[in-house]
Design a protein around this nucleic acid. Sequence first.
DNA 1: ACCTGAACACCGTTCAAGT
DNA 2: ACCTGAACACCGTTCAAGT
Lengths: 220, 220
Amino acid sequence: MSPRVPVSRRERPAKPALSREGIVATAVAVMRAEGLEKVTMRRLAKELDTGPASLYVYVAGMAELHAAVLDELLGEVDLDPAGETWRDRLAGVLASCTGVLFQHPALARAAISVRPAGENYLALVEKLLALLKEGGADDRQAAWGVDLLLQLTTASAAEHSTRDQAGRTEAEWSQVTRALQTADARTHPHIHALAGELISGSPQARFDWFVDVLTAGILH
Amino acid sequence: MSPRVPVSRRERPAKPALSREGIVATAVAVMRAEGLEKVTMRRLAKELDTGPASLYVYVAGMAELHAAVLDELLGEVDLDPAGETWRDRLAGVLASCTGVLFQHPALARAAISVRPAGENYLALVEKLLALLKEGGADDRQAAWGVDLLLQLTTASAAEHSTRDQAGRTEAEWSQVTRALQTADARTHPHIHALAGELISGSPQARFDWFVDVLTAGILH
DNA sequence: ACCTGAACACCGTTCAAGT
DNA sequence: ACCTGAACACCGTTCAAGT
């Protein structure tokens, strides 16, 4: 009545064996297609034709999976951009970094509390250290400077995350700008006076300025 | 059979009328007691003795509620710390800011993509603008500098968010440090050479250094 | 020994139906 | 007109029970 499925039946769909790599690859694919918020254990399990519990054999949990996805994406960062000076090349690497993260802002938000430990992350750190060293930074300036630069890069990408995707977030944004622009001149004189500059500049322009400020500051 | 509840019955529990303020206050209380992750619409509704749908009459959604809670907490920031120079006082304000955010790291993470628009946030921005102006910054340096400083403050607090609370996150952290410490000297010479500095310093020490770098950089 | 179905304990948000 | 019960469409993680 319920005969065993013949081997030939099992051969065709060729359900691939589960593996950490396969799970991460599926996660990346789903993220590219529908965004990080669709990358859930249950969705991944469905995609891989199994139950959510099975995934826990290969990944420790959601946080570790996010870290793995992030490291995968860092592979897209251009570590050798054109540029005469070390400063130009540093700016180029970071710009490439924001380019990747701006495309997946939800991942940038996750990246703030989850440092990846993969190959691509290490390669990025190595490159940034080399560039700061080339610029004359001492050991501490280089090491802590990389931390500072990456923290700011991630934060900048994450900040504009909700901006783009959600619909009414534009209204929410103009709520802040309106608060700044309509600030009382008596109680908030500086906000009133600098309202223009407070909302000026594209995200990219601001980020470029940030990087300039940081490189100048890191080397005293 | 089902007679109306007499007035005397209704008087004692004195179920307070719903209001935006009451909801935010309850949210703050629950966060202080059990952390932001327990601040859910359903939990708040239970706390206020109603259904979750009722909350949507007063708040637009979870994001807006987070922003309101954050603004409430920013009221605890010390805007007039002791300090001889504007630089000391700026460092003091930001230290007070991280103090508040480090106590509620989950909120710091939320704060990255949700700018509040409340009174306390405006007061903080006003103060930071005033201090940078006092230090001789021009309009753009002051305005964008405040953005930079707040972005870094939030990111720093958020970064160490998972560190403290979760149990096994310490293991996760040492996973990154191990990756840095055991990096191959041939493929990652700079990481290998600077391994010590890459993991040196307390979060507080690093943050202080960050603020120094930023203030120096903002003023060229 | 390895894998996983089903359950546990939740979510945010919406909307039809009540008062 | 105002409010909300119940439903919709999901979550991450665990563990007992199967193969």
